[in-house]
Design a protein around this nucleic acid. Structure first.
Lengths: 193, 193
DNA sequence: TATAACCAACCAAATGATAGGTATGTGTCC
DNA sequence: GGACACATACCTATCATTTGGTTGGTTATA
């Protein structure tokens, strides 16, 4: 792949991200993406062989960036929780990105959706990370030993996602970051030994 | 409208519900719905003038049924919370219905989606109900008076929605009902005066 | 007699994808 | 450096299919 090719791919990914976020997988159109990249639709398909592959490429790309930003290797359980709050606060400043995951996750509950498997693996990974951090917190004596770490991991992720949906649909009425922060604060207090 | 007409409309609503749940608004096709109702596509559009109107009709219809089942007029705050747990338990037995709301809510974060306004109003209504019940609980002395009822309402709804998404995407790994029950149990304990 | 309940035929627009072409580099051997 | 080979990066044109929606009619029902 040439230097120019890489640049194009990046540009395509950026535009496709917006398009998928705004219209979902089904609602997005290759022609419109191509137009915004100043490329013919066939030219676009030269870089990504199909719409499905393009979506997966976008998701993987975003996942990678976010994973780096999230910086999974945290020292302790409480630190992870605070990191999650920071993520939500950051997200409340970039609606576009949040929308991508919300829209695709919503669509992907359908079995035959190209993002289905991706979403499943992503949730498993997230639950793993959060659960591990909580267990680390127990080991460090930060948290009580009798808590259900897996259930708490499920809840933290569900809370993030659920608040995102409400916030995207009605931004003026829902202060996603503040409400999530409240949840985490209460949780930290409740988990203290 | 004739007797036969009413029956048809009901049948259309039922089939359209499944189709929208399985494919979302954008993914659903009037032709396929019509086929399953054993009707021509033009015949279908005789009953509902457009796809958009059909979606709204389905949503309103389901909303009405669910609202009756949910039985909003509860006596107290704790009772409402327990009622919510029952709803989640019921939902975990009817994936199709849950999927409708998840898929449409996901799609509806997009501003121009025909379900956008519907989703916004629905969330406002839900938040109102749950918030009212919590305030009723305070008035009755069930709950502490210093709690943030609106934030708790947001969280309860977010938790329901978020768990639903995870459960729909990975049913074997997520016990939606149990995890939600755990949340509510902890909450009731935390809210006690 | 009027209205509701259909249907066949049709429409323009958009969809993702393919075929087959032409430039434009890019690397390799002399 | 120059010549050749080859892959990359596109393009136009075309494809079959599907989309939601309309028109104009016929049949049944109230």
């Amino acid at each position: 792949m040439s230097r120019r090719g890489y640049a194009r791919r990046d540009r395509i990914l950026a535009v496709a991200l917006q398009e998928f976020a705004e219209n979902g997988y089904r609602g997005a159109s290759l022609a419109r993406i191509a137009e915004r990249v100043e490329l013919s639709q066939a030219g676009l398909l030269h870089h990504f062989k199909s719409k499905e592959l393009l979506l997966v490429a976008v998701l993987d790309y975003r996942d990678e960036v976010d994973t780096q930003r999230f910086d999974i290797e945290v020292a302790s359980g409480a630190e992870m929780l605070k990191r999650m709050v920071e993520v939500v606060e950051y997200n409340s400043r970039v609606p576009g990105l949040v929308q991508l995951f919300s829209v695709i996750s919503g669509e992907a509950v359908t079995g035959d959706h190209p993002g289905h498997e991706w979403a499943r693996e992503r949730y498993r990974r997230l639950r793993g990370w959060v659960g591990d951090a909580l267990r680390k917190g127990i080991a460090a004596g930060e948290f009580r030993a009798d808590i259900d770490t897996e259930a708490h991991a499920d809840r933290l992720i569900a809370m993030m996602d659920g608040l995102q949906t409400q916030w995207l649909i009605d931004p003026e009425r829902v202060d996603m970051a503040a409400v999530f922060r409240g949840y985490v604060d209460d949780l930290i207090a409740a988990l203290r030994p």
